[in-house]
Design a protein around this nucleic acid. Structure first.
Length: 509
RNA sequence: GCCGCGUUGGUCAAGAGGUUAAGACGCCUCCCUUUCACGGAGGAAUCACGGGUUCGAGUCCCGUACGUGGUACCA
């Protein structure tokens, strides 16, 4: 019997949650849920310099919006607490010390200057590598070169030090990646990475291995940028906990910028006019707000959908997937190896598809707020829902409900009379005056009857309905858009309809 | 520079040696609709290059080019 699947998302609380980050969580989550496994969120805050207040809460807010609820985390608790690495600080040291004892790691007392000098020297010698590795370590200030008593002296004198892994040359480190298949590294190209920093905090390399072990992680999904350091992690597993306990790795492809080269960054979003973060992120210092997908009007369903399908598909023609379908159909082996360029047009298409099928009751409050922030207070929820139903197929983003629906609640601010005026004449003017009279007396106020009376009146005046419907639309809506014109008239009721016709008539004169 | 990973239309992509090389976004044309959208029909556009292996290669192998990531006491 195999172990229970346990995966983790391990973000650093350093800023906004990037598209790539959300996709990493998503793949973790889908895989875990499909296998009835656990999804853990572990906060990797080992770099005190990069810590940003509020970023942790923000990450959980984003996860909640996306519907990705952790089974264990800082917020949700769990059997392997704490889930914040800074609070686990003391756990890591013993493993680092153990590695030193076993001869797999060593104390290094080199100052930043000394390391810089070493690199300069390597540069002048024309070396291909500027790394701190087996070529140079015996010339450096570390416990490998120093006599044991010298090392002890430095330690006793509280000399700052780090613990570095001792990478043996000429070793071949193969492993199987769930997405990429067999991969191998030659240890001659791997440097002696720092495991424990001078401030006593572990680096990512140590922390990820220790925590994945202690938290019984079975599958580790992370971005492709981690591939080059995988050999260090594998060695650590081998030295500390045994390869047989190591999680299976999957290195996810990157999300690339739509134009030019490189991975997608916040700057690209600013430059090209689309969000890169899941939700609005406010920089604590500059107060600058970076827009999020949520705030510009994306549905979480669409956001999840488009992100999963960027770099994965199930082999069929299906493109629209609900979370449940994704959980059922997701397959890590069908994830692409290569990075994908992000296409905001396609992203909007996904949102449009989801808006077309959205449940208006579910989004009525959200849309109500959008109207409110545009100065329209909605009093009748049922009317709002009716309007939403009428216009949703023409909305790409949630705020479009306002631009597509505001005229149901108030008279249009501007009337596009330039589209009527050129073909306007006295006959048409008379028609609308008569129309007002006729509708004034009308007792039946529904789309079908309005259309019927409109057409009968047109025929009686020997006018083509086609030439009259556009003017009517513009009178009611302000422009050339919106649902059926008689639907609109029926919805806004008699008084508003007549007022708007009269208003435009006065404008034309 | 060195190391790893990748490369099917503009973009996302199907494709596991034999296909007229799917589908979607975007673009264009037409139909529906006397608006806009939805929907429907159609169009232009692709296997990075060079060598092998094979009766046969987008699919396998090798090179090259290009892209991408790493090369921190950041994650």
């Amino acid at each position: 019997m195999s172990k229970k699947v346990r995966v983790r998302f391990a973000p650093s609380p350093t800023g906004g949650l990037h598209l790539g980050g959300v996709r990493t969580v998503l793949f973790n989550y889908l895989f875990a849920k499909q296998q009835s496994g656990d999804f853990i969120v572990r906060i990797e805050d080992t770099d005190q310099n990069r810590f940003v207040a509020g970023a942790e809460k923000y990450i959980f807010d984003c996860l909640q919006w996306c519907g990705l609820t952790p089974d264990e985390s800082v917020l949700h608790g769990g059997p392997y607490e704490p889930y914040r690495q800074s609070e686990r600080k003391e756990m890591y040291r013993q493993y680092a010390e153990q590695l030193v004892k076993d001869g797999h790691a060593y104390y290094a007392f080199d100052t930043a200057d000394e390391i810089e000098k070493m690199r300069e020297l390597l540069k002048t010698k024309g070396s291909n590598s500027l790394q701190y590795d087996h070529h140079v370590r015996m010339n450096m200030n570390n416990s490998l070169r120093l006599m044991p008593e010298e090392t002890q002296q430095l330690l006793d004198a509280d000399t700052p030090y780090v613990i570095r892994i001792k990478i043996l040359p000429d070793e071949f480190i193969p492993f199987t990646d769930m997405i990429r298949g067999d991969i191998s590294f030659d240890t001659n190209n791997v440097d002696d990475k720092v495991l424990l920093k001078a401030d006593g905090m572990p680096t990512y390399h140590l922390a990820v291995v220790v925590d994945d072990y202690l938290m019984k992680i079975t599958h580790a999904f992370r971005g492709e940028e981690w591939l080059p350091s995988a050999p260090v992690h594998i060695l650590l597993w081998q030295y500390l906990f045994g390869l047989e306990n190591m999680p299976q790795w999957a290195h996810l492809p990157l999300i690339l910028k739509p134009d030019g080269n490189g991975k997608l960054s916040k700057r690209d979003g600013d430059r090209l006019g689309f969000p890169v973060y899941a939700m609005d992120w406010a920089d604590a210092v500059t107060k600058e707000v970076t827009k999020g997908f949520k705030e510009i009007g994306f549905l979480p369903e669409a956001f999840i959908n488009l992100l999963t399908v960027l770099g994965w598909n199930d082999g069929t023609e299906q493109e629209i997937f609900s979370m449940d379908e994704l959980i059922a159909k997701f397959n890590i082996e069908k994830v692409h190896k290569g990075g994908a360029k992000f296409d905001f047009e396609k992203a909007k298409w996904y949102n449009h598809e989801w808006i077309k099928k959205l449940d208006v009751s579910h989004y009525a409050d959200r849309v109500k707020n959008i109207f409110k922030s545009n100065g329209i207070a909605i009093l009748d929820d049922n009317y709002l829902k009716k309007v939403m139903e009428l216009v949703k197929e023409r909305c790409t983003l949630l705020p479009d409900f306002f631009t597509q629906g505001s005229f149901f609640f108030q008279a249009p601010a501007t009337i596009d009379i330039t589209s009527i005026q050129p073909k306007w004449d006295e006959k048409k003017n008379m028609f609308f005056i008569e129309l007002i009279k006729s509708w004034q007396l009308s007792t039946l106020w529904n789309a079908a009857d309005l259309e019927l009376s409109f057409k009968e009146l047109a025929a009686a005046n020997q006018l083509k309905t086609g030439e009259l419907m556009l003017p009517l639309r513009i009178m009611l809506v302000g422009g050339k858009f919106g649902p059926g014109v008689f639907e609109i008239a029926a919805a806004i009721e008699k008084e508003a309809t007549i007022q708007r016709i009269e208003h435009t008539l006065s404008l034309i004169e």
